[in-house]
Nucleic acid binder design. Structure first.
Ligand SMILES: [Zn+2]
Ligand SMILES: [Zn+2]
Length: 329
DNA sequence: ACACTCGGACCGTCAATTAT
DNA sequence: TAATTGACGGTCCGAGTGTT
């Protein structure tokens, strides 16, 4: 079933007047599902199941940026509270990726006979997986990602699992280093560049008019507001066709700017802030040699990793379709 | 006391895979 | 084609921190 439509911009008032699906009342008062006022997940539904946290389908941009609870109503209660209702609009959802190859699924439930057989078999072994087959340790051939595809098509902001870079030394070395290799750095730089190109623009330029920047607007999402004419398109992919637009606004003239990365520096450990980093965490002399020794180990390891990465590198350039360059001014 | 920040647990949706 | 799996991309809890 296609989920219910995302409310168009002129949307006024929630459709759930009865409050059936919403967790917040129309007037902005939290609708406590639990008589004692416990948060939803601490309650239980009629079947005695622990109640799940209910999410809105689409938080407004302000709540999204603040990672705070939103509401179906527009303006949402939080924006009303902070008097930023003019920027209270639905955020834009990315289109889900297609064509991703998956590994083999676990066995499905079958007939009762099969199930019994399986159960028996499971008892013979450890039985820790119950009726299901044990998880298959996928081994991905070199040069393929976890989906068996060459390269990693859209890993711009995701935590790409560097399956080829297991480092068993992290814990004993004391300083976890994220070996992002070329890709990661490149992406980070890319993100920064984009940030400079667009995010650095006075943020208000890309916000709805009438929006005055407000202290309660955190920045780490950049501007994800879909502007008129700003078709949603992420930098790496989805060039022309973007069939599934959840929330549509009247298209104006296109200055299609890709939305910036939420956090470009996400996984690089900050040398400055980290309390006990590699440098001189313990001044004792006896440990110093150990540190040296380990760092030489580390150097060797990183050399190996770099070498491995260099082997894979030729792949990635092809995926780097040059993004629509947004020329400032 | 309140607002802000943000890591990460949790949730809903839906494409890929598998069974029929 | 229907059923199911699995994970992507989202929401938002809650702890820590900063500000008034
Ligand atoms: Zn909101
Ligand atoms: Zn809002």
């Amino acid at each position: 079933m296609q989920s219910m439509p995302y409310y168009p911009q002129g949307y006024q008032g929630p459709p759930y007047a009865g409050g059936v699906g919403g967790a917040v009342m129309n007037n902005g008062q939290p609708m406590m599902p639990h008589p004692h006022g416990l948060p939803p997940m601490h309650g239980h539904d009629m079947n005695g199941q622990p109640q799940k946290r209910k999410q809105v389908k689409n938080a407004c941009t302000n709540c999204q940026k603040a990672c705070k609870k939103c509401d179906d109503a527009r303006p949402c209660p939080r924006c009303v509270k902070y008097n930023i209702t003019d920027s209270c609009i639905n955020s834009v959802r990315k289109e889900r990726k297609k064509g991703i190859k998956r590994g083999p699924y676990k066995r499905r439930q079958k007939t009762d006979a099969d199930r019994a057989a399986e159960r028996k078999a499971g008892e013979d072994q450890s039985g820790q997986y119950g009726m299901r087959a044990p998880p298959i340790p996928y081994g991905f051939p070199g040069g393929l990602n976890q989906y068996g595809q060459p390269g990693y098509e859209y890993g711009a902001h995701q935590m790409v699992p560097p399956y080829n870079m297991v480092s068993p030394m992290y814990h004993q070395m004391g300083y976890p280093v994220m070996m992002q290799g070329q890709q990661g750095q490149q992406q980070a730089q890319q993100g920064q560049q984009q940030g400079q190109q667009q995010g650095q623009q006075p943020a208000d330029a890309s916000r709805p008019q009438g929006f005055q920047s407000h202290p309660s607007l955190p920045q780490h999402y950049g501007n994800m507001v879909q502007q008129p004419g700003q078709q949603q398109s992420s930098p790496q992919q989805q060039s022309a066709s973007s069939p599934q637009v959840y929330y549509q606004q009247p298209a104006g003239t296109g200055s299609g700017q890709p939305s910036p990365e939420p956090k470009s520096q996400a996984m690089t450990p900050m040398p400055s802030a980290s309390t006990s980093s590699n440098t001189a965490s313990s001044p004792s002399e006896s440990t110093q040699t150990v540190v040296e020794e380990e760092s030489s180990k580390y150097a060797r390891l990183s050399q190996l990793c770099t070498a491995a990465l260099h082997q894979e590198k030729p792949e990635e350039s092809k995926n780097e379709q040059q993004q629509p360059e947004a020329q400032p001014q």
